Amino acid sequence: MVWFETILVVLTLLSGAIWLGDKLFFARRRAARGGLLDEEPVLVDYSRAFFPVLAIVLVLRSFVAEPYKIPSSSMMPNLLIGDFILVNKFAYGLRLPINNHKFVPIGEPARGDVVVFKPPHDPQNNWIKRVIGLPGDRIVFQGNELTINGQKIQYQTLGTYTGRGVAFGLDSASLLEEQLPGRPHQVLEGLERHVGQGEWQVPPGHYFVMGDNRDNSEDGRLWTQTHFLPEENLRGKAFLIWLNCEGWFCKGSFEPSRIGNRIR
């Protein structure tokens, strides 16, 4: 969230400024005078202790990897509620914290990537979906079947979904493997629901994203202001599940088998 990033940046800069200012202007004076009354102030002592820790956390979180927790069922069956994931923060370029401005271009999303982003209509929060359409693509979604640039995507029926999450209205959902070019993956479809039907032409500098739980995902198909995700709203590429735990202190749910699973 933006508020956490803001607090982290402010604390890092403030503690660093206090430590540096004391080192440049006040530490020598205290050393020259000597005496117990000229000991290092408590504020400087805390700043010197916490600044390296805060700086390391800020650098790792902003430019290397950031943890997120999956709050909804929109990416089932591949990501479950309570999954804690890691997001690669440099896959699509290095970006500044808070304003998300990209200052070092490195790469662009590929079709099928699972990405974390700030949706245009909810810029204060981070969402997670799968990239379906690249800039210039024509996407058609009719009858729960996906067509990209005139090519119908093939599906393999795997049966009725019986995994975790059936309590979320998924007790009759069909489990299929969607043969997305270069990134086959499983999806869920309701037997009687057809959500988010339509056709879209992805504009330059934008992407079209969808959830794997096709009938229970608020994604680009349903956004009203714009159906497309601007490139500048990307936060990173999800790549690893490092914990699964629902509720405080893992009360009622802990699934060790998901630890270390790669996100495909």
Rank of each mutant, 00 (worst) to 15 (best):
D137N: 12
C245D: 01
I7D: 02
F141Y: 14
Q151L: 15
V166S: 01
W19F: 15
K69W: 12
I70W: 02
Y161A: 04
K89F: 12
N213P: 09
A31T: 06
G21H: 08
N125P: 02
K237R: 15
G205P: 10
N99D: 14
G107R: 03
R138S: 12
S174Q: 10
F141D: 05
A17C: 11
D113T: 09
K152V: 08
R30C: 00
Y207Q: 06
Y207A: 02
T160Q: 15
K129L: 00
I98F: 05
D212Y: 12
G211A: 11
V131C: 03
Q154V: 14
S172H: 14
P204C: 00
F103G: 07
R221E: 01
N78K: 09
V44I: 07
G236I: 10
S174C: 04
R95F: 02
L176E: 12
T6I: 07
D215T: 09
W223I: 14
P71F: 03
G190T: 05
L58G: 13
K152H: 10
I259M: 07
F26N: 11
F103T: 07
L229M: 11
G220K: 05
Q142F: 08
P97V: 09
G236Y: 00
G182S: 07
I128C: 14
R221C: 00
R183F: 10
R183H: 06
G112N: 09
L94V: 07
V202D: 04
F168L: 05
G220A: 06
P109F: 03
W242G: 08
L188A: 13
Q179T: 09
L79G: 14
W3F: 06
L60C: 08
G190L: 12
N216G: 00
Y92L: 08
G190H: 11
A17K: 04
D113Y: 01
V195D: 13
N213E: 05
G133W: 09
V166K: 13
S72I: 08
L170V: 06
P135C: 11
G190F: 04
I18Y: 01
I259K: 03
I81M: 15
F141H: 01
N100L: 03
G16F: 10
Q154T: 15
E255D: 15
R30K: 13
I106H: 02
L188E: 04
S217I: 11
Q201L: 06
F4H: 02
P77Y: 13
V57K: 05
G211M: 06
V104C: 02
I148V: 11
L24C: 10
F239H: 06
V116C: 12
L240S: 09
L234C: 10
E108M: 13
I7T: 10
